[in-house]
Design a protein around this nucleic acid. Sequence first.
DNA 1: TCCCGACCCTACAACGTTGTAAAGCACGTG
DNA 2: CACGTGCTTTACAACGTTGTAGGGTCGGGA
Lengths: 342, 342
Amino acid sequence: MSATMQDVAQLAGVSVKTVSNVVNGYPYIRPATRARVEEAIVELGYRLNVSARNLRQGRTGMIGLAVPELSQPYFAELADLVIQAGEDAGVTVLIEQTGAQRVRELEVLHGERRQMTDGLIFSPLALGEEDRTEFAVHYPLVLLGERIFRGPADHVTMANVEAAYAATRRLIELGRRRIAVIGAHPGETVGSAGLRVVGYERALTEAGLPLDPALMGPVVAWHRSTGADAMERLLAAGTPIDAVFALNDAMALGALRALSARGVRVPQDVAVIGFDDVDDARYSSPSLSTVAPGRLQIARTAVELLMARIADPAPGRPFVEVVADFEIIERESTGSAVAAST
Amino acid sequence: MSATMQDVAQLAGVSVKTVSNVVNGYPYIRPATRARVEEAIVELGYRLNVSARNLRQGRTGMIGLAVPELSQPYFAELADLVIQAGEDAGVTVLIEQTGAQRVRELEVLHGERRQMTDGLIFSPLALGEEDRTEFAVHYPLVLLGERIFRGPADHVTMANVEAAYAATRRLIELGRRRIAVIGAHPGETVGSAGLRVVGYERALTEAGLPLDPALMGPVVAWHRSTGADAMERLLAAGTPIDAVFALNDAMALGALRALSARGVRVPQDVAVIGFDDVDDARYSSPSLSTVAPGRLQIARTAVELLMARIADPAPGRPFVEVVADFEIIERESTGSAVAAST
DNA sequence: TCCCGACCCTACAACGTTGTAAAGCACGTG
DNA sequence: CACGTGCTTTACAACGTTGTAGGGTCGGGA
């Protein structure tokens, strides 16, 4: 089949190990020898057998990235960035989808794919704080998101409370007083939903505004359709509303649609702000104001942390928690830039 | 570190090969022996070493999927489906991004990642018919898309001409006469752009409508922003237009935005139809009529074809070309379902 | 002169698995 | 009673690479 080091060695008249040394950039090789070997490599079209190297070295050169599903733009864009960050770090990223199902998330943590990677970046959605022990794995692990804190792993997260506070605060500064929130998970205090609602409430309270339960649009899954539905229900209920804070962009875009279907003008009648700064937010109409959660920083940091763990798996090292920087992006849906392109 | 077959064998009091046989479901094993081995496996928490198996068997159990970029929803959704199809077929899908750059596409074809996979599903965007020879590789390859025909590989594509024809025809049936097309690549005859334009022109001609160059909105890259720009230019030029066929949904959504910014009503003043049936199309406002290109079918077929090639790499077998079924999805932007949700 | 270190190269074993070949056993058949 | 057949298990070698240990050679300092 394809050429091995054996073949190259023979053709170049050296030992197999010398070929290996050339391939791996070992410095003490006579230029002449190196040249001969390289020539032989080209001539035979030799390619290193990754499986053999993996076996010998006990590493695979791959890291896993487990997300709920790629068809959600937030995760697709995250995956894009993680793949690139991995490339820069010299590793291949293997993407896995959990569908946000508990069994599949457990499978990701303990399943056979873990045999194929040197470490895992994991954004859990079904598993939570109560499953903390599941995360005590024997391979390098970096967690993303808000579901697990003080877990036995490094952790990259966003400033959910602060960012939600800032978003809501901005709406208040714009003179809005009846600010609905879409995407709350009633009773939840720990996931993105819970934390963002805390920020929302903090901003209202601080401004002396009441926390009106009629302004809460609960939602099961954070999709476009559920966002539209929640908005529908709020409108149908007749509660006066002059702004909406959607806990992610997908729901915000759904809400925009529901508002426009009802003939409600955005931002004149109702201002809308989302969360995620998905690519789409820029191109909806009206374009969507939102919170940019520092995706690039998250991707890079996660890969860096993981690579550090892989390089030095010393079990004693304390776990790191990194909070990414966020930014409020103001577009048309909050009215700061009215009427759009000339 | 972790247990090997050696350890399991010792604990169960059998040979290594017997453990291997149990693990691989070899039938001729006494139930008692099998039980002892399985017990030992559980007790030691044994997991098969994939690298060793790969080395021994000369296969990796992975297939590659190379797409331009995951942040484009069409490809993210495709990747999602291919990963699932791979799962069903018992292989792991390794995603690679080319950024639609020529060098990176060549790298995907010939680079070292090909060492890590048993085959490749490749959707090229920079390479074309003229690079045909590059695709004559020595591993199983399935091509997606319209850039390469009669290449030396299996091929899964869509009925671009027919689908574009049907989409345009539908606009004509709705009484539209001044139908602009957004996304044309002037002079191109082979890629998705070229083919879809052919379908568009065929429909016009057949209906006795003129092919007005003023209705052509050329575009470099198929993004939301370029779609919006092209729409802008068409509107600014003042050419009368009563419908738009955007060659993909991203551009159609951009066009919707440009239209609404201008105060043009969709579908009353201008009907819009896209191509791809991206998830977003369902949730824009107005919701976007589009061509569903049979993504699921494409994903499944591609994986099937690839698996067949991997199972039987006989070089003689003629290359297959599969054309996926399409469907016209009518939503609000073409006016069939006016005014939206109750 | 001898020895030490820097440089260059090599033989060997090992990583964990599976394919091959074959051995042992029990059973029934001719 | 010899023999083939089906079942169950095993020893051995191999997949292609790299770590270890060491064998040379050469030049310079003691």
